[in-house]
Design a protein around this nucleic acid. Structure first.
Lengths: 303, 303
DNA sequence: GTGTGTGGTGTACATTTGTTCATCGGGCTG
DNA sequence: CAGCCCGATGAACAAATGTACACCACACAC
């Protein structure tokens, strides 16, 4: 109610925060916050009436080059925080355009997906969201797949599933027994039967990835030696898109790459130079068939 | 094209003017101006999803008190310039909601109408606009009724008529001969047959009105002595809404009050204490049946 | 009661946005 | 060709907006 008054006074009547505050007996800062809330909540909708995309030609080129269903490109910006936000905004747009109320969406774990979730507008699409991996134990908040699924479900007034298992179990036996749990089994089966996958792609060039950052040095060198160039949901793959198996892989709880491939719409979100090798492999091998990236990465993928 | 890129980068991706400028090789100031243009041109649309009006109860009260078809109220603000803009924004909304492509709109001359025109969004409604009075000779620009009609026609991709005559002729004979001109006759007949009237209301308490300000002291006292409390399009009326005739009235070129009354939708835009008496008379006598005003004036009209 | 957090609030500051003004160049007129 | 006007441009400034931080009140636990 107050929200609506403030929003209309600002956006329709062009008053300043201060003037609205004076008129309504609030503090300016309060008005500022109410306006932010009004935008967040979707009460204020800003539409730019332009049909064609910002990078229509590059998107077209990437689609035909790698046989992709759809590509979205965000402009590359210097400030990394801003770049992530821009990528996330485009990613949110992409996700929103791909899903509808009948969609079941498998949700991967990555910082890119996390920021897409944060940028996702509240809109009653009513889809279901299912994590494709277990949760990290001591991870920073917002970086658990079920948190992401839950947040998406809340924003779309849809439903979320929870995968009660760790992302990386302590041993291969522990992982096997987690997979054997009926609840886990059920959720993973649902995830494999999803209509859409949204996932980030981890690179192997730096140690900032959620998973890679948590591994020991030894584990990392073993992965690199096995030819790993990147991962989706903790499942590493090589330059040809083949699964990199081994000790780590056997401890991961989540869908395998061959299971992911059964999902019809597979949307990857990734940008930046460190992801290039991983992206090339994932795209060329058809691991994903839709892409959200930034313009510099797009150019590199086309070169 | 550039406009669209800039608008999307700003509103959809949340980049700052500076960042967009850097990315596109423009100066920041240029981006600022492009964004202003994008908003002006309607390329950027901002919708606040709130059903009820800001002052629903007051609007309802005014409607039943004076038997009006519709009332719109803008918040009262201290800064007069801002207050005028807020009133104009609400007035533009009101006008836009009242007319459609089949409307013929009779346009009165007043500063309030002029600012509504300035605030009117570009939208292809395609109505016709017809001035109800002649044009002032030496008036500041933007304050000629045919300029207002023309501007409205441009913004709605509609058509405008021109009334080639002075607002106040030099003598009653000159006014009569102007009225006798077939072109003038024709336009005034069209105006009288309009579906909608939009007009400001002039008060008699200060000399800032477009018309009143141009009159001599003697003329003014004569009007006041005759009981004039306000005017619409140069036609003064008394507290009962009756026409104030006399030397000035005979020199005015434009529709008479009884002719205005034949227009079905009669929308007045006026606010401020100096207009109160005029508004009361116009509303109570049914001279107008729709009103745009500010909240303080609304409260005074209800008291 | 005391500690401890949590949500809401405003102050002070940093950043972003908008506006004014002087300048520049290009085209038109005399 | 000079003179002039007009629109476009950016620099410099003013205003508006957003954010980090400190504070307070309240609730809850011990």
């Amino acid at each position: 109610m107050l929200l609506g008054r403030v929003a209309r006074m600002y956006y329709e009547l062009g008053l300043t925060h201060q003037e609205i505050a004076d008129a309504l007996g609030l503090s300016r800062i309060r008005v500022t916050r109410l306006l932010a809330e009004a935008r967040e909540s979707g009460m204020v909708e800003i539409i730019v009436h332009v049909d064609e995309s910002l990078f229509a030609t590059e998107e077209q080129a990437l689609m035909s080059r790698y046989g992709l269903r759809q590509v979205w490109i965000a402009p590359t910006v210097d400030d990394p925080a801003k770049a992530a936000r821009a990528l996330a905004a485009v990613g949110a747009e992409a996700l929103a355009s791909v899903i509808d109320k009948d969609s079941t969406v498998a949700v991967g774990l990555s910082t890119a997906v996390a920021s897409v979730v944060a940028a996702f507008p509240e809109r009653p699409l009513g889809a279901s969201f299912i994590p494709i991996t277990g949760s990290g134990s001591g991870l920073a908040n917002g970086a658990n797949p079920h948190e992401l699924a839950l947040a998406l479900a809340q924003r779309t007034k849809g439903s979320a599933f929870h995968l009660p298992a760790p992302l990386v179990a302590a041993s291969r036996e522990a992982a096997a027994s987690a997979h054997a749990d009926p609840g886990v089994r059920d959720v993973l089966t649902r995830a494999a039967g999803a209509s859409t996958l949204i996932a980030g792609i981890g690179g192997t060039h730096d140690t900032r990835g959620i998973l890679l950052g948590s591994l020991g040095e030894e584990e990392r060198t073993r992965l690199l030696a096995a030819g790993a160039v990147g991962d989706i949901g903790g499942r590493f793959f090589d330059a040809a898109g083949g699964a990199v198996t081994g000790a780590l892989d056997e401890r991961v709880v989540g869908l395998r790459l061959d299971e992911l491939r059964t999902i019809p719409n597979r949307l990857a979100i990734a940008g930046g130079e460190s992801k290039l090798d991983a992206l090339r492999a994932a795209l060329a091998s058809g691991l994903v068939n839709m892409l959200v990236t930034d313009s510099a990465t797009a150019a590199a993928l086309l070169a």
